[in-house]
Design a protein around this nucleic acid. Structure first.
Lengths: 341, 341
DNA sequence: CTGAAAGCGCTAACAA
DNA sequence: TTGTTAGCGCTTTCAG
């Protein structure tokens, strides 16, 4: 692995000149420039990023913290971030926090030692206070999934309360009144938000809030499965279920169908996220679109804006609207038919 | 951001001593050790990884190259790799090559400049010759998904030919004779292998190879959808379809069902990979288990073995067997019933 | 337009 | 047990 000194020697110039053709080629006479480039080719020279980073105080990499890479939502975020990072010549560090605030904290501390130039955190489990503390002006930060509550960070988010509201309101419009909710883990802010949206919709339409109709799941297929099973075993099925994500909706769907409960005939179902699989189950899932790819893209762009122009930095707050995606699982077509028959 | 010099000054010792308490604490008297640690805390000192890496010629990170993070297979690999990397205190660079040999090549070149200490490549599109060239003894490499054809790389793989063979043989055992195959992109070695397995099984049972029964897909849901649609439009449906991955199987399933073709009653279906969703569609998919998480885990372990003990390095070849997972989509239960009735 | 030299923060001989 | 010092490979003043 050749280094800059060897190139300089072979080309009969100083290392400074070699460095210049790399970083400020316009300041080098075209003759020596050619020569140096030739020698670089010959020696298969490529600059050592570590050394470069040390001199410039840059790492040319950013980190992405996600809670769970096996949740199909996050690879989409990662794709968005990677697309932007790669186009800037940056590497992407993947940090899987396993929904563990300890691991998130550990990662963030690790990264704050100039291991990366910036950091994108999705669905953080830490408080703003702690995030800002760790950041310490040193680590440009972009948060995905949370509204902004502090200066100096970019935030890209959707309103989960609104999303939950949209889902439940749609169910109510379809004529359902006894609507259950399978929530995500209570420790996640977004779970609480979706629950709030659920409650808001019910309240607004004068429907009662029954505690027995809300079950906490784990945002995994299994959690949806178990929750729906409990509804079945309780003997008194709700007319509709709003699951806090598509994975749980699919778990619920699975157990409902295998228990002989018709979806949407007997129980209507709405999910959240609009993951790709939601249109491949039977019946296809009505859900709330969660524009995660776009959020990854935007968060990364904001981050690079900060990296490239730290001076005129305005931290931004970008809000993307959740959107209802109507498919069969909540009886849309049946209802239409009823209306016209 | 405090550096080692500041810590040394505050503690009234030399930087060497501070470095020692970090790297060889047993060589420092407990008194000064305490003191230094105290000052580190006070200054919130954390070593600069770049500088450390430069001095040691180490980066404390490894890279994972995957063809497509949106394919649910690869997040599983990534999880396996991340689990191991994190336990070693290493960072993981995620490189999404988009099934583009150019991008793969570019990434590999980028990484070979000591950007990472080692590299795991899944489903590489490059030739062994090229891989070895890029590696240039400098970058410890572990390959996932390919048997070993060269010295100096670890390989973890399953035999896709065997997998394809298992799938089709099972279909034949169920009594199907007119069996179609929706293959993956021909450029992928594994696609060719699965096709070979398909052919081998047919031949072995004296069944004819009909060109019209093999359609190339893109390993995406859409490709399966389109291929199955063509079978339908051809008017003469096969009795069974072996799709080269579960995503395509799901695409096929979707169009079959919506065209009123019963699965498995009219057409049996087998996929490949056993992704989580394969047990959530209706009917649940018979498929070939692809132990990708395990492969990620093993590849990462082999890589770290090399990193930690470069001297006694024996590059290994680990072979995991593909396994048939029987579910409803190829009519297992019906057949059983026939036998007993 | 080019070179000499300092320095980025850290580690590891080598001395003491 | 500790300090001194020479790098690791690169960038960038500052002179020329």
């Amino acid at each position: 692995m050749a280094n800059i000194r060897e190139v300089a020697e072979k080309a009969g110039v100083s290392v400074a000149t070699v460095s210049r053709v790399l970083n400020h080629p316009e300041t080098v006479s075209s003759g020596t420039k050619e020569l140096v480039r030739l020698k670089m080719k010959e020696l298969e020279y490529t600059p050592n990023n570590l050394a470069r980073g040390l001199a410039l105080n840059k790492t040319y990499s950013i980190a992405l913290l996600i809670p769970n890479i096996l949740n199909p939502l996050y690879p989409e975020v990662a794709k968005g971030v990677e697309d932007v990072a790669h186009s800037h010549g940056y590497n992407l560090l993947l940090c899987n926090t396993e929904e563990n605030p300890e691991k998130e904290r550990a990662y963030l501390h690790l990264l704050s030692n100039r291991s990366v130039d910036g950091c994108i955190v999705t669905s953080s489990l830490l408080s703003y206070r702690e995030l800002m503390e760790i950041q310490g002006d040193a680590l440009p930060l972009a948060l995905i999934g949370r509204p902004r509550e502090a200066e100096g960070v970019h935030c890209v988010f959707t309103d989960f309360t609104e999303g939950g509201y949209l889902a439940v309101q749609y169910l109510i419009e379809q004529g359902y009144t006894r609507i259950a909710h399978i929530s995500g883990p209570e420790k996640l802010p977004e779970s609480r938000d979706k629950l709030a949206g659920y409650r808001k919709a019910l309240k607004q339409h004068g429907l009662p809030l029954e505690d027995t109709l809300v079950l906490e799941g784990d945002n995994e297929v299994e959690g949806g499965y178990l929750a729906a099973k409990r509804f079945i075993q309780a003997g008194h099925l709700p007319e509709a279920i709003f699951a806090a994500n598509d994975l749980m909706a699919m778990g619920a769907l699975d157990v409902l169908k295998s228990s002989g409960v018709g979806v949407p005939e007997e129980v209507a179902l709405v999910g959240y996220d609009n993951i790709r699989m939601s249109s491949l189950v039977e019946p296809k899932l009505t859900t709330i679109a969660n524009p995660v790819y776009k959020m990854g893209l935007i968060a990364a762009r904001l981050l690079f804006d900060s990296l490239n122009r730290p001076q005129d930095q305005f931290d931004q707050e970008i809000y993307l609207k959740p959107k209802l995606v109507v498919r069969k699982s909540c009886g849309h077509e049946d209802r239409i038919r009823e209306i016209f028959s």
